[in-house]
């Protein structure tokens, strides 16, 4: 049933496209993290208008399917005078915007777990709001939410399969192309699934390990 030589032939191509998958999901995580910090600050702000704005962001970018968001961005960016946006840029934009909404919600839990007194101490010493955010709040929130953030990375790697619709030759799109030429649909897609497993299962294990360690330390 398995045509091994043909499958092995496709491996280098898949491995190369894996880099595109990793690149776009890592970029999505990084930029999404910055967006997440900002949106989370809005959500926790004292001013109701800012809070509403943060809430609206999360509602929109969590509510609309990522596939639809990606298509929208792909067709929308040229309309607002950015005609030469590469598929990769559109894909990373889409992943980052969506990841920002999820990361904002993850971080909110972490931010709320930091005792208020620590922030009062910082204000008394004259630290600026930005310094308090960057030096006191974010490092602690990240430590508390690291397992959830790793989980978000897994979600992003999986979600990046959808950027194939904007024509980017990442892992899934490459497998599609290979299957279309060798007609080994089942086998090629099984190899494709294996690629995702090889990345995501170790990540999931690391996340689980961290979570257990965190629980023990807090207990």
């Amino acid at each position: 049933m398995f045509d091994w030589p043909t499958l092995v032939e496709s491996l280098p191509l898949l491995a190369k496209s894996l880099l595109v998958t990793l690149e776009s999901s890592l970029a999505g995580l990084g930029i999404g993290f910055v967006i997440g910090v900002l949106v989370c600050s809005l959500r926790l702000s004292l001013h109701p208008l800012w809070r509403r704005l943060g809430g609206a962001y999360i509602f929109v970018f969590r509510g609309i399917p990522l596939l639809v968001q990606l298509l929208f961005i792909y067709y929308f960016l040229p309309r607002i005078g950015l005609p030469n946006v590469s598929p990769l840029a559109a894909a990373i934009t889409g992943l980052s915007l969506a990841a920002g909404a999820y990361i904002a919600e993850i971080l909110r839990g972490g931010f709320l777990a930091i005792p208020e007194g620590q922030l009062e101490a910082a204000h008394m010493l004259g630290l600026s709001p930005l310094d308090v955010l960057v030096r006191i709040q974010v490092p602690q929130a990240v430590r508390l939410t690291l397992p959830a953030l790793i989980n978000e990375m897994i979600l992003l790697i999986k979600a990046s399969s959808l950027i194939s619709v904007v024509g980017l030759a990442e892992l899934t799109r490459t497998a599609q192309n290979i299957a279309a030429s060798n007609y080994l649909f089942l086998q090629t897609y099984l190899v494709l699934a294996l690629f995702y497993c090889l990345i995501n299962i170790p990540l999931a294990c690391a996340g689980g390990l961290l979570e257990r360690r965190l629980k023990r330390r807090l207990a």
């Binding site: 005792p115 007194g117 620590q118 009062e120 101490a121 910082a122 008394m124 004259g126 006191i136 490092p139 602690q140 430590r143």
Partner: peptide, 17 residues
């Protein structure tokens, strides 16, 4: 104005990280 005041809290409020 605050820069001339130092404050010490009941719960210490050190930054644990």
């Amino acid at each position: 104005v605050r820069s001339t005041i130092g404050m010490v809290f009941q719960q210490f409020n050190l930054w644990p990280h």
